[in-house]
């Protein structure tokens, strides 16, 4: 397919999105990420039954925390796609980068990020 996706996206691999915790998303924001998204398997197709659904709840909770902090909750998102959907993966990366570009840089100053 030789698809490309924006270089701004840094991938952190986990065995299942169920491994992603609230603190991981918060730490990324705290360290200066402009946005974070979790790409999990399609709903109902988690190898570990409900890892992606747990991740969805955690993303929702982080969005709530960001709102409480006066930060746009759209900086954190959850997407679902299968490992066979390469084109969709690139599409999501572009979609998220566009969304963050519209929001601008993170309001979290003095961050450690480059």
């Amino acid at each position: 397919m030789r698809l490309t996706y924006p270089a701004e996206v840094k991938i952190i691999q986990v065995p299942c999105t169920g491994r992603v915790d609230i603190i991981h998303l918060l730490n990324a924001m705290e360290d200066g990420a402009d946005g974070v998204y979790v790409a999990g398997c399609l709903e109902g197709e988690c190898h570990y039954i409900e890892g992606n659904l747990k991740a969805k709840r955690k993303v929702k909770y982080v969005k709530k925390i960001l709102e409480e902090l006066g930060i746009e909750s759209e900086r954190v998102e959850m997407y679902n796609l299968s490992s066979a959907q390469g084109a969709r993966f690139a599409e999501i990366a572009n979609e998220m980068v566009d969304q963050i570009r519209q929001l601008g840089p993170t309001p979290i100053k003095n961050s450690n990020a480059a």
Partner: peptide, 17 residues
């Protein structure tokens, strides 16, 4: 432990902002 870490991170974000 989890909630302590979450609150600490949230407070750091708020202050940095």
């Amino acid at each position: 432990l989890k909630e302590v870490e979450i609150l600490a991170s949230s407070m750091k974000i708020a202050r940095k902002k």
